[in-house]
Design a protein around this nucleic acid. Sequence first.
DNA 1: TTTATATATGCGAATATCCATATATACTCT
DNA 2: AGAGTATATATGGATATTCGCATATATAAA
Lengths: 125, 125
Amino acid sequence: MHILIAEAKPMTPLQLFKLLADETRLQCVLLIAEQGELCVCELTCALKQIQPKISRHLAMLRKASLLLDRRQGQWVYYRINPALPDWALSCIQQTLAQNSTLLSPLQQNLCAMGERPQRLSACCA
Amino acid sequence: MHILIAEAKPMTPLQLFKLLADETRLQCVLLIAEQGELCVCELTCALKQIQPKISRHLAMLRKASLLLDRRQGQWVYYRINPALPDWALSCIQQTLAQNSTLLSPLQQNLCAMGERPQRLSACCA
DNA sequence: TTTATATATGCGAATATCCATATATACTCT
DNA sequence: AGAGTATATATGGATATTCGCATATATAAA
């Protein structure tokens, strides 16, 4: 889905920081950066937030080309766009590397990798 | 001024990104990071913004311990707090290093270093 | 002490952002 | 086709942020 027609203009620092300046979006970005790829319902479960809220924030991150998405069956998986400028990837990676404690409570609500059940809602409390 | 009584809690990623998510504050931070130290009226001049606006944003950055201030005569100089966590300094430095073109129009409105006149308003258009 | 320059802040208005709900779309399986 | 699950978006209201203006304070020079 979401076919890339032409290369978008590179992200500006102001754009990046505005995207990361919301707790829900920041948690999504850091958790995705750490896990490599996550679908909407996994994030919904991990962050304990309602699905439209997660989806709306992911849409913002996708439209800004910070995230890429990939549909697999009924699930849509999001990942960090590896084509982001170096400084932007660096900001995300450095923040992630030195703030791991912020993610641990979220990781506990994730299914173990490679153990995703058919119905992901079974993961969530 | 602004005596530090006790060590403040380290900045969270969300706090940093919220601070950098405003164009005026971002320009102030990047320009200060590049120049080392700047006073309010230099920033007012460089950014072509009214003084209360600059002062208010600098106060936010100072209260969050992102900037330190130092009064010298009638001027108050702001600098990056070197005690910021590594990931935060890294975000600022990486962004600065790879987005120098954003600063060039602002630098042109700065007095050359070491050439500050008595009346700084003489710098400004 | 008066005047000028530099900086900080109180306040209301304008603007931007975020949220919950409802609803639409897409896919899977039977 | 119909039911169940997953994802996306539209809408209107609540909240937060930012702004300009006026003004207060501080330092310096006359």
